[in-house]
Design a protein around this nucleic acid. Structure first.
Length: 920
RNA sequence: GCCUGGGUGGUGGAACUGGUAGACACGCAGGACUUAAAAUCCUGUGCUUUCACGAGCGUACGGGUUCAAGUCCCGUCCCGGGUACCA
């Protein structure tokens, strides 16, 4: 019987669906192992061959751990709220729920065909009210909490109110909005309901606040920082502008330091940790006040270089800085107003694109140098960001390249205060050298000067040392339809959250998925959608990252309608042991999920404060695009090798009609109308295509689906081949050049069990050689899996099968162990052969073979004998010989003299069972 | 610019703590079976040189450490990914 993959795979996929051998136990004496995959957004395009790469790796791990006696949690679900389904709904009127449902179905079919061992009984969908009920519940907890810097954790807002009632807010050390005013207990008690609500908003972790946001007019919504790339929206590429808006936000900044510190305790790739560190952007510096001349006001700046204080030659404020209007003199008024209008209207994109272009304007105002008393001009410039630090900088052009460019452009003085550079050419930013022109700091090294200057600044009460983070609070409201409704209603203009028993607040039906005529979000279209029929609900919905910030917890207890996850279960499952996902979520999802995990930990709802112990980034599988070359102003297509003879334009064509760079011309003619009657100029009778490595995308017609490969070669081949392509973490372009090698391997494996088309397995005792082949393989495969080196496993399987083929081995004792090894990688063929061997239970929980060192010990070792490091010949010697004995035998060998050239060896190095090196 | 990962045959890639570089696979060449093809099997395959035995050169480039370097150290170049006025 030949290896019939399609029949076998269909059979086992049906069996697994029915018998559920991959069900994770909630009550088990086995050790637990939690393997999680990246949460997929079910897009309309379906899966391409790049998506399953990580899923295959994690599935191998899950199956391996089951063999090793673990209770494995390996779930899958869908991040099913999001923009694409909604954009599609706007265009077609089709409800996003419907589109989402269809897409999920397609995903499921594709996933099933690859033979993953997911526990589908735990499937979650973020757009399911049974799921988002708990997303809303977590929002309510966030709303009802504040961050206590003393205990360094989130606490119930009630403890804060109690404190206000006792002592007001002056003794409270909380993460709160800048500029929150002080009040006494008496004042607090006298505040109106509305005023109290407003004050508490400055403290809540989920809060309604005014902030500059990324407004995307084309999408009609605000976006979080990580959803904006190069000044355009990540989804769709629409321009984004800055706008001051009242928005629901998350006080993630309260967690900045813990998010940073705890990176040290998780096993994540260094590059990913580094981008989180950078995004969090901790910087230690000093805040420092400059007194304005002829004014009561002071300008507060933040600097990391207080040592260069004597090098300050001007101050720069962000155009949005609150003092700008107040301090601008009459004669500068027009210029300043012009500049502010100009920089406001400039999109973020323009602003970023013109980074090298210096712009700014003088306000006419002067400040006083805190040490020298010198007059310092105050400028505004949009290289200073309103949202960072204090929105104002002390400019030290001699030692800061941005200030330098500004000073050069406007002819401002550039004093030198640190020796070591040539400031006539460029600024000297390095933190090295001796201080000069700096009064009491003169002669000190930068490091000492830093310490000294801070002490002096604090002593004189000019400022104090301060830690700043680049991280901003995350905007949480979206002016969109397809997301979780925020469980808030308004009574007398005061926001209230719903009670737990009123959840879920179900997404209402609307007639259109667009904003209303007066610019309100789509939810304003919902008829009679009011709390208790009376109070307005919040009209924005949650962002895409809300549901994905806690899904790993829901898998532990997916069907619970009493709580988001039962505490005994979350205590048992703890957190994810292995997460495999792409690096593109480094500064978005993977920060938010850490934030929510820490928050739930603080409130004692879970016992872990990190979502995943170990994380691996799988590389991206790029597409290999194919193109043909059309001679300009004609309908002639020329083969790639001839394109330089003409003036041509390249046109992307479907990669699925190209094989080994040769275009199937008939298929091409059918593929697009304008090729139907084109003229073709071939080389060697073939139309060769050009190729390029690009992102796999519909746009480039280079998408290859796993379905196609499963149909042609089978899921087991697909799984093995994706692993065989190279190391998991490495990005690589997709090509099927080597796939026949992998499918050939499975056929060879199959044939070990068959003779003359009959299943034939011998019960004989295996030979020493056969045992050695097997145990060598057990050892290698175990090591490979443990270090996630799946590509080398595939090679080792091939070597093993080749050797057993040569040994003509068909002994049960060997083959039974072999297919157990193969089973995590190619589960269908393994189940089938396992059954043929007479087993009635699924192979999936059979114990993994253990290797026995005794079978691997060699009696002899072939020593390479080298002279000055160059290998000249080999000697087969007993493995038990000592170094001295080896040396003696080698030196007595007749081949030695040929290479010694009559000289006496200076030194002889013998490393037992490694090498012999003779130095002459 | 900064942070990261990488550079090994015609190709994808092996080489775990320094110890025979190129495992395994593709491709290519030759052969067997076949009327023929597919499938399968066998042999060869880093480059140069040699009928052959062999010799020389080889892990981006230039140095260094070592008996021994793809692997460790210093410098340079190139490619991929991330990020960007964060004071």
């Amino acid at each position: 019987m030949d290896y019939n993959f399609s029949e076998i795979e269909k059979k086992w996929q049906a069996r697994w669906a029915k018998e559920k051998p991959f069900k994770a136990e909630n009550n088990s004496t086995k050790p637990k192992y939690y393997v999680l995959d990246m949460f997929p957004y079910p897009s309309g395009a379906g899966l391409h061959v790049g998506h399953p790469l990580g899923y295959i790796a994690s599935d191998i791990m899950a199956r391996y751990r089951r063999h090793k006696g673990f209770n494995v949690l390996h779930p899958m679900g869908y991040d099913s709220f999001g923009l694409p389904a909604e954009q599609y709904a706007i265009q077609t009127g089709q409800h996003p729920a419907l589109t989402t449902q269809e897409n999920i179905q397609r995903y499921r079919e594709q996933l099933d065909k690859i033979g993953f061992s997911f526990d589908w009984d735990r499937e979650v969908r973020t757009s399911d009210p049974e799921y988002y009920k708990w997303t809303q519940w977590i929002f309510i907890q966030l709303f009802n909490s504040w961050y206590n810097k003393e205990s360094d954790k989130a606490e119930d807002i009630k403890t804060l109110i109690a404190e206000f009632e006792k002592k007001g807010n002056s003794a409270v050390n909380a993460s709160c909005d800048e500029g929150t005013k002080k009040f006494t207990a008496l004042e607090w008690k006298a505040f109106s309901e509305k005023k109290k609500s407003d004050v508490l908003m400055h403290y809540r972790i989920a809060y309604l606040g005014e902030a500059y946001v990324n407004w995307c007019p084309a999408l009609g919504t605000v976006l979080a920082n990580d959803e904006v790339k190069d000044g355009v929206s990540e989804r769709g590429g629409h321009p984004v502008e800055r706008k001051l808006m009242k928005q629901w936000s998350m006080r993630i900044t309260a967690y900045a330091n813990r998010l940073l510190e705890d990176l040290n305790k998780i096993d994540w790739p260094e590059s990913l940790k580094e981008s989180q560190r950078y995004w969090l952007g901790k910087s230690v510096g000093t805040s420092l006040r400059f007194q304005l001349k002829n004014s009561e006001d002071k300008i507060e700046v933040f600097t990391t270089r207080p040592d260069t204080i004597f090098g300050v030659s001007f101050l720069t404020l962000a155009p949005e800085h609150e003092l700008v209007e107040k301090i601008t003199t009459a004669e500068q008024k027009n210029q300043v107003t012009d500049y502010i209008t100009k920089s406001k209207n400039r999109s973020e994109r323009e602003r970023q694109a013109e980074v090298t272009k210096v712009s700014g304007v003088f306000t006419g105002a002067y400040a006083e140098h805190p040490f020298t008393g010198n007059k310092i001009p105050v400028w505004i410039g949009d290289y200073v960001l309103a949202g960072y630090g204090t929105g104002a900088v002390m400019a030290v052009p001699g030692h800061d390249s941005r200030d330098y460019a500004f000073a050069k452009n406007f002819n401002l003085p550039i004093p030198e205060v640190v020796q070591g550079g040539d400031i006539t050419k460029e600024s000297y930013d390095a933190k090295e050298g001796k201080l000069i022109n700096s009064d009491f700091l003169n002669g000190l090294e930068v490091k000492a000067a830093l310490k000294n200057s801070i002490e002096e600044i604090e002593k004189r009460g000019l400022g104090k040392s301060k830690i700043n983070f680049r991280l901003r609070d995350a905007v949480f409201g979206r002016q969109r339809y397809w997301g979780e409704p925020i469980p808030v209603y308004y009574k007398n203009d005061i926001p209230y959250v719903l009670a737990e028993n009123e959840l879920p607040l179900v997404l209402p039906e609307v007639d259109k998925f667009l904003p209303t005529e007066d610019g309100e979000p789509p939810l304003a279209r919902a008829k009679n959608w009011k709390y208790k029929g009376e109070f307005e609900y919040e009209l924005t919905t949650m962002p895409g990252w809300a549901g994905s910030s806690w899904y790993f917890l829901r898998y532990m207890d997916a069907l619970n309608d009493k709580t988001f996850a039962d505490r005994t279960l979350s205590d048992y499952w703890q957190n994810v042991d292995l997460y495999i996902g792409g690096s593109e979520h480094a500064t978005g999802h993977l920060l938010y999920v850490r934030f929510w995990t820490k928050f739930l930990f603080d409130l004692n709802h879970i016992s872990v404060d990190e979502p995943a112990k170990k994380l691996i980034n799988q590389g991206m599988i790029q597409g290999t695009s194919a193109m043909v070359y059309r001679v300009n102003n004609s309908n002639k297509i020329v083969s790639a090798g001839l394109k330089n003879n003409y003036d041509t334009t390249s046109i992307h064509i479907d990669v699925n009609i190209v094989e080994n760079n040769v275009v199937n011309v008939e298929a091409l003619k059918k593929w697009r109308d304008d090729f139907a009657n084109a003229e073709f100029e071939l080389e060697d009778g073939k139309l060769l295509a050009g190729s390029a490595v690009e992102k796999m995308s519909k746009r480039w017609y280079n998408v290859v689906t796993p379905d196609l490969i499963c149909q042609k070669f089978g899921a087991d081949t697909l799984r093995l081949y994706e692993m065989f392509l190279g190391p998991l973490e490495q990005s690589k372009p997709w090509n099927t050049n080597g796939i026949t090698g992998v499918s050939g391997f499975l056929k060879k494996l199959w044939r070990l069990f068959y003779q003359n088309n009959t299943f034939t397995v011998s019960e004989e005792e295996p030979t020493k050689a056969e045992l050695k082949t097997l145990h060598k393989t057990i050892k290698k495969i175990t090591e490979d899996i443990e270090r996630f080196s799946f590509n080398t496993s595939v090679s080792n399987f091939m070597i093993c099968v080749n050797e057993l083929g040569e040994q003509k081995c068909n002994k049960r004792a060997i083959l039974e162990k072999l297919i157990l090894l193969v089973s995590p990688y190619a589960p269908h063929i393994a189940e089938e052969l396992w059954e043929s061997l007479g087993h009635t239970e699924s192979i999936s929980t059979a114990p993994f073979p253990e290797f026995n060192e005794a079978y691997l010990t060699e009696d002899s070792f072939i020593y390479p004998v080298s002279f000055n490091g160059k290998t000249r010949f080999q000697l087969d010697l007993s493995a038990t010989l000592t170094a001295q004995e080896v040396e003696k035998i080698v030196m007595e060998n007749e081949q030695i003299s040929k290479y010694l050239e009559g000289k006496t060896p200076k030194k002889i190095i013998v490393v037992p069972k490694k090498i012999v090196n003779i130095v002459i």
